[in-house]
Structure formats: structure tokens, C-alpha cells
Amino acid sequence: MKIIVLADTHMPRMSKKLPEALRSGLKGAGLIIHAGDWRTADLYYELQQYGRVEGVSGNVDGPDIKQLVPEKKLLIIEGFKIGIVHGHGKRLTTEKRALAAFDGEKPDVIVFGHSHIPSLSYTDETLLFNPGSPTDKRRQPRYSYGVITIGEELKAEHIFFDSKE
């Protein structure tokens, strides 16, 4: 199964449309995960045109998103536990807040956002995966999103691109 992983799209403020590189990647996705800071529900409905959408709300999301998705979610996909949280809050780093959100639940992977910094690391046996942002790279050299592939194993990678057009 191919899972497209997004966060921090901030649409329509940071972009009026999804970048072509992302639209191309969304084709054939078995699932789309958004780790918060959508900005409006319009993106949620647009992503549904590509496949099943799961996600959480972030610190800039309004009531329309908060009615559609929770602040934290734990999915079981083909036997793998996938935790999703935005990662905002006080104290600690974004990564540590994401880990703390699932304390005691032992997910195989935690998808988070908030920092706009693409990252892929392991803490104990949990994969921590931040896809970065496809529309608001901030101080990063390139825009990005993530792909999780589930077969016998769960694998994650970043897709980097130069233009949000």
C-alpha cells in the first residue's frame, strides 16, 4: 500500500493549489495522511478526490477542520500502528511532543508536522516521520511530502521538489 503523507499545507494562504509534484504523487495512493495545519476544510475535500483521507488538526486549523478530524489519531493499517499528531505545544521539541502523545501506545510510526522540517529517525523501535511541507518550506532548501510504503515491512521516504506550482 502506498500512503502519501502531508503536513503544514497552510492552504490557501501559502498556495492556492496543490503543487504538480504532489498531485502527481497522489495518483494511486491507497491512503492520504495529513498531520495538521491544513488551514481550511477545502483541502480535506480536495484530497478525497485522490483517495481515503485520514488526518489530525494543527494549531492554525479552524473549527471546520476540527469538526472533521481529531487532534490525535492511531490507525492500524495492514497490521502496522500509525500514530498521527501535529506536534505543537509548549515545552520540549516538536519530535518529543509527538512521542509523548503516544506514550504507552507503541506505534510503529508516528507521523507529525508543525516544524516544516522533513525528518526521518528512529527512537527505540518507533519511526518518527515528518514529511515537511509541500507549500511552505520556510528555511528548508526544497518543498517536500512523504511516502510510506507498506508491504512485509513499513518503509518511509521523502519526496523533494523545487516548485510549489
Rank of each mutant, 00 (worst) to 15 (best):
S15F: 12
K16P: 12
K16I: 09
K17H: 14
K17A: 14
L18W: 02
E20Y: 12
E20N: 09
A21G: 04
L22H: 03
L22F: 03
S24R: 15
L26G: 05
L26A: 06
G28C: 11
G28R: 08
I33F: 10
I33N: 07
D37T: 14
T40M: 01
T40W: 00
A41T: 03
L43K: 04
Y45P: 01
E46A: 15
L47I: 08
L47P: 04
Q48E: 14
Q49E: 12
Y50G: 04
G51P: 03
G51R: 03
R52Y: 13
S57N: 05
G58R: 01
V60N: 07
V60S: 09
D61T: 12
P63H: 14
P63W: 04
P63V: 09
D64A: 10
D64P: 13
L68M: 14
L68K: 10
V69T: 06
P70E: 01
E71H: 13
E71N: 13
K72V: 12
K73D: 00
I76E: 15
E78D: 12
K81E: 11
I84T: 04
H88F: 10
R91W: 12
T93F: 13
K96W: 04
K96N: 09
A98H: 01
A98F: 04
A101Q: 08
F102V: 11
G104N: 10
G104I: 13
E105G: 05
E105N: 07
D108V: 11
V109L: 08
I110D: 00
V111M: 03
V111T: 03
F112L: 01
G113I: 01
G113D: 02
H114Y: 11
H116P: 04
P118C: 09
P118T: 08
P118W: 03
L120N: 05
S121G: 11
Y122Q: 08
T123M: 11
T123I: 09
E125L: 15
L128K: 07
N130A: 03
P131C: 15
S133P: 03
S133M: 12
P134L: 07
D136M: 02
K137R: 14
R138D: 10
